[in-house]
């Protein structure tokens, strides 16, 4: 029963910074050093006039890519977790089957199709891709929030109520901390998928790391495609290892308690 409180108060275990640092420094090297790698990319395209994508700096593209994914992820966390909390309360119980179905429906809609449908509705640019990513990433978050909150032992909740906690306090200091590892795992899946999917935004005029890839496909320049792909893959690995670190920390503080 005491796990929740202890988990919150216990000394934080040291963070495992090794892998995030490795991937992040590789990413930084790649992004900043891309212009100096011309000799390497010459191997891919010996005849091309230009082998390093220069229409925008990779740092700018990375920043735009990251901000699109971050906005979609934040909105997804807010909507997903709130929806999960709402339907596990007594009043919202009736909505649970529908919300669960809706979230799995969101995963069925291919992101390209959502993107294509969003463009007529809200125009070209960054917003359609944010909407598509939000819709696509919502399922893992909602699903994990639901299973995390439903997995909290009913006896634990009863005991917390018996200690005089209000339902709000039970939610904030018992249910959410206990469900946190599962919710975090959902956010991790959602964000990792969306980093790769965000590249599609380049097809509707949202400039991001998908740009070099599209330019490469159009101009038949493999070097551009490789540059876009490598940076996106490194970004995905960096973010994924950061999530891994957070999860490890949650796990160790839990087992220490």
């Amino acid at each position: 029963m005491g796990t929740a409180n202890v988990a919150v108060k216990s000394r934080a275990a040291p963070l495992q910074w090794r892998w995030p640092l490795v991937w992040a420094s590789l990413l930084a090297l790649c992004v900043l050093g891309m212009p100096h790698l011309e000799a390497l990319f010459r191997l891919f395209e010996p005849d091309a006039r230009q082998v390093v994508y220069t229409r925008a700096s990779f740092a700018t593209l990375l920043w735009r890519h990251l901000s699109v994914v971050a906005v979609a992820a934040l909105a997804g966390i807010v909507f997903g977790v709130l929806a999960g909390i709402a339907v596990t309360r007594k009043r919202g119980r009736d909505f649970m089957p529908l919300v669960a179905q809706l979230a799995s429906l969101g995963q069925t809609f291919p992101p390209v199709a959502v993107l294509a449908l969003a463009v007529p509705a809200i125009g070209f640019g960054t917003w359609p891709i944010i909407m598509a990513l939000l819709l696509y990433g919502l399922l893992p978050i909602v699903r994990n929030t639901l299973s995390g909150l439903l997995g909290v032992d009913a006896e634990v909740k009863t005991a917390a109520r018996a200690m005089g906690m209000t339902p709000w306090q039970v939610l904030i200091s018992v249910e959410l901390p206990l469900a946190m590892p599962i919710i975090l795992a959902g956010v991790r899946t959602s964000v990792t998928i969306n980093i790769a999917t965000a590249a599609l935004g380049a097809t509707v005029g949202a400039s991001n790391l998908g740009d070099p890839i599209i330019a490469g496909i159009i101009n038949n320049n493999t070097a551009y495609i490789v540059q876009g792909a490598v940076v996106i893959a490194l970004l995905a690995l960096t973010v994924d290892s950061l999530f891994d670190m957070l999860q490890q920390r949650l796990k160790t503080s839990r087992s220490a308690a």
Partner: peptide, 13 residues
């Protein structure tokens, strides 16, 4: 982790 867009493109050459 390779974006789908890139995987399609990478196979071209």
């Amino acid at each position: 982790t390779i974006p789908s867009l890139a995987l399609f493109g990478l196979l071209l050459a």
